Simulated scan of single mutants.
Amino acid sequence: MLTDQIDWANPEGDQVRIDISKPLPLSGPPGHVTIQTQFFFNKGLDYLHYGSKGSGQDLSISKIKVARYHDFGLELLAPEHIWINDVCTYDISASYGISHWWFNRQKFYIDRHTAESSRKVVRTHMRILSVVRIKAYSRYGYDYLKEITLRRADHQEYTIAEKDFKNLYPSDFEDLNLLLLQGHLNHLPGSDIRMLSTAVKLWTRNLVIRQRVEDFQLGIESYQKLLNLTKPGWDATGFEFKHDYTIIDSPRAVVFPVSNNEQKIMRFNEIYKFSDGTLTNIMEALDYRVKEYKVNRLNPGMNTRFWTDKDVERSKEFIHAIERRLKTRRIFQNLECFVGGRVRDIDYRLLQRTE
């Protein structure tokens, strides 16, 4: 459990005492916020990498102080030593958040969740309205949900098992957590509610762990010692002649301006490495060009070339990919609230959703 005081050892070996009960000091000019490196105290990546036999979990989802920054170009402010050099791997029990379980229980849980499951049968965007009934059996101290009957938005019943969790959308777990939180499952026996709550929270924790290890920490997550990803390849050398916010075919990327009349590129496969502010800025600029620019005409900001149908199509693809990334982040921020630890304003409109 975290206390209001954290001792953190910096790379030089000095001890820095941090009072996390108070707002962390941030500096920088208006519109740009710089996080002092001594406040990157999250050891979650070390835990996921090496595992733990203790009962406590030092994960990013258990931090008290978290932050969300919407500043444009925030990733440009990150010092070079904060990015990792290699992609970090971690053991499967740590990714499930069950490293502190004894071996047979771990093996039973992991084997059940890695069992074959039909993706087409269970994967749908329809909202979950209710849980009708549950069938389960216990072994090694864990209650495995053999059958879960759900009622979705079309008012039809669908049957899944706990092994199908890996094929559901994150929004499905948001719906299940909301049903549990709002007390809409009181028609089920108390034992069934407890079993469902345990299974859903464990898998929600697994989703959050996997997402946060792969995601961009500065923009949407708590303070870290190191960013849990490699530095994006945003150098625009060789593409300086490109207009701002035009799409490059190879590599598949978009050119965007930063300070001092400098240009950077954001590759399509590296969208997840950029902060919310940068993604929102680029998405709005592309959206403006799609809606306001005329195809095969000289347009403001592009006085040396015509815009083609291909430009419009590629811009729409980038807009869709960025919207999907921002939506995913919003869902996982809410899921973190359900598994505990985040001090963050929950979107209470979600809690007021009715059937």
Results as ranks from 00 to 15, higher is better:
Met1Ile: 05
Asp4Glu: 11
Asn10Ala: 07
Pro11Cys: 08
Glu12Tyr: 15
Arg17Leu: 13
Asp19Pro: 05
Ile20Met: 03
Pro25Trp: 01
Gly28Asn: 04
Pro29Cys: 01
His32Thr: 11
Leu45Cys: 03
Tyr47Met: 13
Leu48Glu: 01
Tyr50Gln: 07
Gly51Pro: 02
Ser52Asp: 08
Ser55Val: 09
Ser55Thr: 07
Ser60Val: 12
Ser60Cys: 11
Lys63Trp: 09
Lys63Met: 13
Lys65Val: 12
Tyr69Lys: 10
Tyr69Leu: 15
Glu75Ile: 11
Leu77Ala: 12
Pro79Arg: 14
Gly97Pro: 01
Trp101Ser: 00
Phe103Asp: 07
Lys107Met: 06
Ile110Thr: 01
Arg112Ser: 06
Thr114Gln: 14
Glu116Ser: 10
Glu116Val: 12
Ser117His: 04
Ser117Trp: 06
Ser118Pro: 05
Ser118Asp: 15
Val121Pro: 00
His125Tyr: 13
Met126Ser: 12
Val132Leu: 02
Val132Glu: 09
Arg133Ala: 10
Tyr137Lys: 11
Tyr137Arg: 12
Ser138Tyr: 02
Asp143Cys: 12
Lys146Tyr: 08
Ile148Gly: 05
Ile148Ser: 05
Leu150Gln: 03
Asp154Phe: 02
His155Leu: 12
Tyr158His: 13
Tyr158Ile: 06
Tyr158Asn: 02
Asp164His: 02
Pro170Gly: 07
Glu174His: 15
Asp175His: 15
Asn177His: 15
Gly183Cys: 07
His187Leu: 06
His187Val: 04
His187Gly: 04
Leu188Ser: 01
Ile193Thr: 08
Leu196His: 08
Val200Ile: 15
Trp203Phe: 15
Arg205Gly: 10
Ile209Met: 03
Arg212Gln: 11
Gln217Val: 09
Gln217Gly: 07
Gly219Phe: 01
Glu221Phe: 03
Ser222Thr: 14
Tyr223Leu: 11
Tyr223Glu: 01
Trp234Gln: 07
Ala236Lys: 06
Gly238Phe: 03
Phe239Trp: 13
Phe241Glu: 08
Ile248Ser: 01
Ile248Glu: 02
Pro251Leu: 00
Ala253Pro: 00
Ala253Met: 00
Val254Leu: 02
Val254Trp: 04
Val255Gly: 00
Phe256Val: 01
Pro257Asp: 01
Ile265Lys: 02
Phe268Val: 09
Phe268Gln: 04
Ser275His: 10
Thr278Tyr: 13
Leu279Tyr: 02
Asn281Tyr: 15
Ile282Ser: 03
Ile282Pro: 03
Ala285Phe: 08
Leu286Pro: 09
Arg289Gly: 14
Val290Thr: 14
Lys291Ser: 07
Lys291Asp: 10
Val295Ile: 15
Asn296Met: 12
Asn299Pro: 08
Pro300Glu: 09
Thr304Leu: 10
Val312Gly: 09
Ser315Phe: 11
Phe318Trp: 05
Ile322Ser: 02
Glu323Thr: 12
Lys327Gly: 09
Arg329Gln: 10
Arg329Pro: 00
Arg330Ala: 15
Arg330Lys: 14
Gln333Lys: 04
Glu336Met: 10
Phe338Cys: 02
Gly340Leu: 06
Gly340Pro: 03
Tyr348Trp: 11
